[in-house]
Design a protein around this nucleic acid. Structure first.
Lengths: 194, 194
DNA sequence: CGCGACGTTGATTTGCCTCAACGATTGTGG
DNA sequence: CCACAATCGTTGAGGCAAATCAACGTCGCG
């Protein structure tokens, strides 16, 4: 995907949610830096501070934690039209606890945290856009917590299929297991019974 | 607590986070409605649409879901200086899936969702305030998801003690169990081993 | 072709749940 | 002010869902 199409995708995304003139977007565009990622390439490693927000324009990324036993726990999938970053590290400037890498060859547009204050002042509509984004992310995460507390392995998987149709087609099954908090073996057994 | 002190608490809370003149707050104040809640009194019942945000000025509330088997799953504790509501219902105008009630005799300041648009326009700094609020809530929830995926019962409890010191003193143990996704019996056994 | 990544299946273990009983504390109405 | 009920936390016995450990077949890629 050439860069023009990537910018276009973000512009369309934003204009569907907040009022933003083409002129303002053209102006905003200078803060974006396109980047290509190969499958398995990392955008962020745990230990590094997270300095950018990434808007995915092609492919699919994920964020995950890695505990002392080497177990992965996937926190978020980010296909096209999604933002991904480590908000904790981004906001606190502390070293990140998360990894972010590409599940497929991907393209992202990077927005530096260092520019965010300027952007909020220059384009106040971004303040609103990110409020709306964080609100909907909050609702989705709360729903996920509720699912984790109240559902069995099978229910969690079916809930996942309904909530993120399409993801199951493109993501390895053991990664979905790590998102649901199951072992790959358990997920395999759960699927057999459906 | 008389109403003046309640308004003062919210003003201090806001002014610690965003620039807001006393004059603007005095103006903003007209949108607030104080409300007293007795222990166990509900602010919201599942099935009703959620129409207000509540800022707790005294006491402690919680939000929780109730599944078909009658099991409670606590999603949030809201002691003084916290907001509580069902964001999903508030934003979508759909019937709520959550209950909100008071764990102690409490006082809240209510902000109607119907007024929020006006407030964002009249006091743009609220757009920023709620963006910051939602960001930090998002970070906390993601941390909670990570804990739910990767920790054992005992680790979750110790993590809870560290993250919310003070809550354990004021909330019944079986309610904490429902927050952690444990049965009261399991939490009791976990505690014995510490 | 050969190797690594991936998914499946089986045998066994285990962490937490369920069910049941009980004592302590709180609070409520007569 | 007391008697009784409800709430709350604890403990024990037994069960179960998912994890662990191990082996194996397939696919895709270098």
């Amino acid at each position: 995907m050439e860069t023009t199409a990537a910018y276009h995708l973000l512009r369309t995304h934003l204009q569907a949610r907040v009022p933003l003139s083409d002129a303002d977007f053209a102006d905003f565009q200078q803060y974006l830096r396109p980047m290509l990622l190969s499958k398995r390439q990392h955008l962020l490693q745990a230990g590094e501070p997270c300095t950018h927000l990434a808007f995915v324009t092609q492919g699919c990324l994920r964020s995950y934690s890695l505990n002392a036993q080497g177990q992965e726990h996937t926190l978020q999938f980010a296909p096209e039209d999604w933002w991904v970053s480590d908000m904790y590290s981004l906001l606190t400037q502390q070293p990140s606890n998360l990894h972010i890498d590409a599940l497929e060859d991907s393209q992202v547009l990077l927005l530096a945290q260092a520019d965010m204050e300027t952007i909020y002042v220059r384009f106040p509509v971004f303040e609103r856009y990110f409020r709306l984004l964080m609100q909907s992310r909050f609702v989705a995460l709360q729903e996920r917590v509720n699912a984790a507390l109240s559902q069995t392995a099978g229910e969690k998987y079916q809930h996942f299929l309904r909530q993120y149709p399409g993801i199951v087609q493109r993501v390895p099954q053991h990664v979905i297991a790590s998102y649901l908090g199951l072992t790959p073996e358990s997920l395999s057994r759960v699927r057999r019974q459906l």
